[in-house]
Design a protein around this nucleic acid. Structure first.
Lengths: 114, 114
DNA sequence: TCCGTAGTTCAGAAATTCGGAACTGTTGAT
DNA sequence: ATCAACAGTTCCGAATTTCTGAACTACGGA
């Protein structure tokens, strides 16, 4: 298996982020990861609502998320642990990811501070 | 010519917004419109950098922007005036569009209030 | 070694995008 | 009224991308 490619923070392109999250299935996967503490595996996230995502499609979704810079994947034994790169990304593109998750209704809207 | 379709505010989908702006050419067009006071025409925005966008492609870009809910187009004489629906959209998806424009470097990063 | 599980790669079908050419709709001139 | 010029749309074929079942690779346990 080819080693997994992860872009360096400075190589992450906004168009890749938007493209990756413009697919509701991928956005839902990402949102799950953003919520899950441990780092989700592919199979754990393979069922969204009533549809079972075929595993080749799922693998591709993770690849798109990974190569866009949204997530970090590393093999751990027989499975793959995935976690978001939220903190890094929020530094590079302030407010972007949070605004997207809010737009999708995956996290409640933030009240203004103060 | 078919009448131009514009989605109602409540029908606008985040995936459509992200998809529309995941194309750097469309994002640049949108950013120009967001900056231009008057409402830009297709031909006025048909040249970005060194590339001349073919007019059928340009027409399609505007269609995608329009049908995603990002812009409002209306015929004015022989040409088409386009303007953003920024205010509306910002109400529906708070912070989203601004964060995207910032990510693309099209507007300077906003300082935190206070 | 052999088996089961997790995920990747391959390959062909289906869907999408791109853009040149033809077309529509509007204005202004004769 | 007719014509020409112009802005933008639609059509359609070529190229690209996406989707997913099937085959495959990688790891761990017995």
């Amino acid at each position: 298996m080819r080693p997994l490619f992860h872009p360096a923070l400075e190589d992450i392109r906004p168009e890749a982020i938007l493209y990756a999250l413009s697919d509701p299935e991928r956005a839902a996967i990402y949102a799950q990861l953003a919520g899950a503490a441990g780092g989700g595996t592919c199979s754990a996230l393979g069922q969204l609502g009533d549809r079972v995502i075929p595993k080749s499609s799922l693998s591709n979704h993770f690849k798109v998320l990974r190569e866009s810079g949204l997530i970090l994947s590393e093999r751990q034994g027989v499975e793959m642990r995935n976690q978001t790169r939220f903190a890094e990304l929020d530094e590079r593109f302030p407010g972007l990811i949070k605004a997207i998750l809010i737009a999708y209704g995956q996290i409640p809207e933030q009240p203004k501070a103060g």
